[in-house]
Design a protein around this nucleic acid. Structure first.
Length: 478
DNA sequence: ATGTCC
């Protein structure tokens, strides 16, 4: 394998059709299997690629690895539903609480919190929305701005300003050509309506965590309203069946179009089309609808968790949002003075201080980049560094799987899972599931060591740590 | 990821 070393934690691996930039320390790089590079090689056969990279959490996915950043010029580029991935708009959200972890020591209190959260956020039923008053059409068209005003009642940062719910998010509305919505069957509308504000399964979660501020970033932490021992709410969810349906349908229609155009690729699940085609445009427009859905879905989960906190701890508890951002999408961004389509599949944008693309609230510091660990290990709140420019400001999206779901179920016992959650010990992580059997494939042993992943991102000067988030409670769907 | 093959 031909390789150029670009300095700490950054290698450029040269393959037949182009190069993949890999951001990983030596230890993580050694875990990258041959199939990951084969996938890069196949993805790089998509014409006129401008940039292709892996973050340290990269692992094999359908058509394209999770942990990919792939860039084309808007003018002559390609869009790929496979590089966006199936959970369009999947992402992270953190809400702050005024509580210190010492106020959540009581196990009974934590159990009450779990129960209260589960009354508002269905984790076992598939489509049991508690928001029957919310019109889905407004949500997919206008995102957070499509919600009834009562759901955006969170106070503004400045007197007379707009709700933090609209200012402390990556984007409150993704605008697009709504005529594309006419292609969506009634059944899909109905299913997605029934899922608004629900968590979903797999790696999705609600966690209650406590913060450890990083010494080097105390000023930014203070600016963001973070303090040592602070209890925060971290949410990981996506666009549910709405995005899954679009991913499935467009993979099929792109495949037919590729056949028609005579485009071939050795990767059977990798589909793509020029941006400037009817197929490309229709997919992009509907992808925006899924981004709108996903942002609203996480917002409603956050809204519900606040109600649960108030039920258990009193009405005075308020939980303002810190930030909401995604790690699965393709969006137009300006890089090198050129409009480009940046695909991120399991990759998180992390802009540094002063970058023009930051939301107003975070222009000065850079925006928070929210990185989940696995159940039982820490998550991280990071901030982009100037060195991130070389990777189009992409960092990791989590620990990254090291074992498939099937392999995990075969390799790890319930007892080992319990040990990883420190069940029965002082710092035990409380889980909503009575039996861990149903979520065994989500055990910490299924994931890479998140600290090695973070070390790689910091080592490559892509971002720095603002706070480490230690889990107190983990709520998972099935 | 997804009422995971109506």
């Amino acid at each position: 394998m031909k390789m150029i070393e670009h300095g700490n934690c950054h290698r450029e691996v040269q393959l037949g059709a182009g190069s993949v930039h890999v951001f990983a320390n030596d230890e993580v790089f050694a875990t990258f299997g041959q199939r990951v590079f084969e996938m890069a090689e196949h993805n790089l056969r998509i014409p006129r690629n401008v940039y292709f990279s892996y973050t340290p959490d990269a692992h094999v996915g359908v058509g394209t690895c999770i942990g990919t950043t792939a860039v084309w010029n808007m003018r002559d580029g390609f869009v790929s539903p496979s590089i966006v991935g199936s959970d369009i708009g999947c992402g992270m959200r953190v809400h702050l609480t005024p509580l210190h972890r010492d106020e959540l020591k009581d196990k009974q209190l934590k159990r009450e919190l779990i129960q209260a959260i589960e009354t508002y956020v269905p984790t076992t039923e598939r489509g049991q929305t508690s928001y029957t008053d919310i019109p889905l059409e407004e949500v997919v068209k206008y995102g957070l701005n499509g919600l009834p005003a009562a759901y955006l009642a969170e106070p503004a940062d400045e007197p007379g300003g707009v709700s933090r719910s609209l200012t402390h998010v990556e984007k409150h509305t993704f605008a697009f050509d709504h005529t594309a919505l006419a292609h969506i069957p009634a059944k899909s509308w109905q299913r997605a309506w029934g899922q608004l504000g629900t968590l979903g399964g797999g790696n999705h979660f609600i966690e209650i965590q406590s913060l450890e501020i990083a010494d080097d970033n105390r000023e930014i932490a203070q600016e963001w309203g973070l303090f040592d021992g602070q209890v925060v709410i971290m949410i990981h969810s996506g666009s549910r069946a709405w995005g899954a349906m679009l991913g499935r349908d467009y993979t099929k229609s792109f495949k037919e179009a590729m056949f028609k155009w005579g485009i071939e690729n050795p990767e059977p699940s990798l589909v793509y089309a020029p941006i400037d085609t009817e197929e490309g445009q229709r997919y992009l427009n509907l992808m925006y609808s899924a981004l709108n859905y996903a942002v609203v879905n996480r917002h409603l989960i956050g809204y519900a968790v606040e109600r649960a906190f108030q039920d258990v701890l009193g009405k005075a508890v308020s939980t303002p949002v810190l930030y909401d951002l995604m790690h699965n999408y393709a969006l137009e961004e300006y890089h090198r003075n050129t409009p480009m389509l940046v695909h991120r599949k399991g990759a998180t944008k992390a802009l540094p201080a002063g970058h023009f693309q930051n939301p107003k609230a975070y222009k000065k510091t850079g925006h928070p980049a929210l990185i989940p660990g696995s159940m039982g290990t820490s998550s991280y709140i990071m901030v982009g560094a100037a060195g991130g420019a070389k990777n189009f400001y992409s960092i990791c999206h989590g620990a990254g799987r090291i074992r498939s779901r099937k392999a995990t179920k075969e390799a790890v016992t319930i007892n080992e899972f319990e040990q990883a959650l420190r069940i029965g010990q002082e710092d035990e992580i409380l889980v909503n599931h009575r039996s861990l059997e149903a979520i065994l494939d989500e055990c910490p042993q299924a994931y890479k060591d998140v600290d090695q992943i973070i070390d790689s991102v910091v080592g490559a000067k892509l971002a720095t740590v603002v706070a480490k988030c230690k889990p107190l409670i983990a709520i998972k769907g099935v």
